[in-house]
Nucleic acid binder design. Structure first.
Lengths: 109, 109
DNA sequence: ACCTCCGTACGTAGACATTCGAACTATCGC
DNA sequence: GCGATAGTTCGAATGTCTACGTACGGAGGT
């Protein structure tokens, strides 16, 4: 049997204050920027890329991102694949994600 | 002499994670929606409109909103006038504020 | 001067966030 | 089965956020 799946909010259950609160954390914003860059990501690869030490720390952040509707977490084998819920976010809050990601890039300059 | 002024970040000192974190709080998001509606606002009028009990609670939120660059606080007589820094936010993060405000309205439906 | 109104500063209390280590479950390969 | 890998769960420590009451200071009106 494949692993258990997590509870995700439906598209119409997403709330903007939850999304903003989730993305107001620098580490979680970095995660979203990384996922937006495309490619396959599991928890460990993100953890290594961002230089986080403890896996259990990220487990906390996965839950915040998942329960706010920002990412989707899909178990596959012994990995946990992570994807940005771009279609849902774009449908519900047009332009929000792009504005945030552009803003994050602007802050780096 | 008029009252002391507060420290506000310059436009280019604003950071998107600070803005998101500030607006991730439902009460502060309501404040921004109210200020965006136009009209003159001082601290007490916002407090009364939103049904907040303690002034000192709002003083905390004014600081968060001010230091993240979302609002400007300008003492005038014995009042403290509040304005949304729309021009600065629009210049630095095009579309962000509109997307957030539209999202907040969408969540109400 | 006096009183009143507007808002801040301070201390405090409880709730929540963030991070970590250690123990645990499940999966894959041998 | 055995060992290694991928993540989670749990508990604890630390820090931050939110809200409140009280006290304070500045500005206006009388």
């Amino acid at each position: 049997m494949s692993g258990m799946s997590y509870r995700h909010p439906e598209r119409d259950q997403i709330r903007v204050d939850g999304v903003l609160s989730a993305l107001g954390n620098p580490l979680r914003l970095s995660v979203v920027r990384l996922l937006d860059g495309g490619g396959d990501h599991n928890c460990t690869s993100v953890l290594n890329t961002l230089g986080v030490t403890a896996k259990s720390t990220m487990t906390h952040h996965w839950r915040v991102l998942r329960e706010s509707g920002v990412i989707r977490q899909r178990p596959s084998g012994r990995e946990n694949l992570l994807t940005l819920r771009r279609e849902d976010l774009d449908a519900r809050y047009p332009g929000l994600l792009d504005a945030i990601l552009a803003g994050a890039r602007a802050d780096e300059s």
